Amino acid sequence: MRLIFCGTPEFAVPALETLCQGGYLPALVITQPDRARGRGQKISAPPVKLAALQAGLEIYQPIRFNSEECLDRLRQVQADLAVVVAYSAKIGAAALAIPASGWLNLHPSLLPAYRGAAPLQWALLDGLPVTGNTTFFLNERWDAGPVCLQETLPLDTQARYGEIMPLFARRGADLLLRSVRLIEQGCAPRIPQDDSQATFAPLLRAEDSFLDWSQSALRIHNRIRALYPEPGVFACLKGKRIRIQQTRLHSAAASGLPGEVIQCDKQGLVIQTGEGGLEILELRPENRGSMKALDFINGARLRPGDRFENGGYCEPAPPATEPSPRESPPAGHDPD
């Protein structure tokens, strides 16, 4: 079977490698152009391009996927099937019609749930105990084509996006290989999706990174899991941005305002939310590396009653000043 493979990020690399190991070397690998990335804005190749180079595969990086030039290149390959994994471009009707067996996509959700660009993050945001992977045939609507195969995968209550995405990529790659074999054998399922059950998972926005302590501890915890490691979830403390990276629910009874430190000792750092307590396990202060909460407590000199503010713009903390000579010293203060 002659294949085209379309993919770009790290998530797509296991799928490409698994297809090659299974005897399906793509005749052409299509990936996004090299782009500036990171803080230094250094031009770098997408992960799929690097994997294709290592495998000795032909690579094509069109600027506009649905251009006539790109369509001509697709026709020249004379592929039986095109496989797409996180390519980051809409496949137009003209391109969909070219491979004889169509286009097969790997999507990390149990379609029709979580159609869109960020399915696994939204599953974590919603606190799902189970989600999975789906292979399906593309049509002209986003993630709405007939399903080939599905596999369910559990989500632990402490699971974080950056940690589980490689697992979904590996398991999805195996599911994709099984699907390709069924297509080659002419017995692949094509199960229509029930549009009435569809939910959607759009790209996350910048404001989704701003922590709101008035929300419940469970909702905040799920947001932190879903946005780890990037773009992250931020709060403010004493005028500095703090990236909250790992938390767990705490049984503390409500005893303070949302964002208020209600426990700060060797037993842990617990913050009051709009509903319940939330223990911070790991965080990253502004211009610092990641650290455990207990290490942060010692350096930041936190005390019960201190308050984390919501994320977003952090008002600079007022500078510490000495009392005016006309001010009375605080109660219990010994001027000597």
Rank of each mutant, 00 (worst) to 15 (best):
L3H: 01
T8C: 13
A15W: 14
L16N: 00
T18C: 14
T18I: 11
L25N: 01
T31V: 11
R35W: 09
G38C: 08
Q41M: 15
I43N: 07
P47C: 09
R64Y: 08
V77S: 01
A79M: 00
V83C: 01
I91D: 01
G92V: 03
L110C: 02
L111W: 09
P112F: 11
Y114H: 12
P119N: 12
T131F: 15
T135N: 07
T135D: 10
F137K: 02
N139M: 09
R141T: 07
G145K: 04
Q150L: 04
Q150F: 08
T157K: 05
A159D: 15
I164M: 11
L167A: 04
A173P: 01
E184C: 06
R190Y: 10
S196G: 05
L204W: 09
A206L: 13
E207D: 13
S209N: 07
S209Q: 14
W213T: 00
R219Q: 14
R223N: 11
R225M: 12
A226M: 11
E230N: 06
P231A: 10
K238G: 06
E260P: 04
V261G: 10
Q263L: 14
G268I: 03
G274P: 02
R284Y: 01
L294G: 06
P304H: 08
Y313Q: 06
C314P: 01
A317W: 05
R326T: 04
R326C: 09
S328Q: 14
P329Q: 11
A331S: 09
P335V: 14
D336H: 13
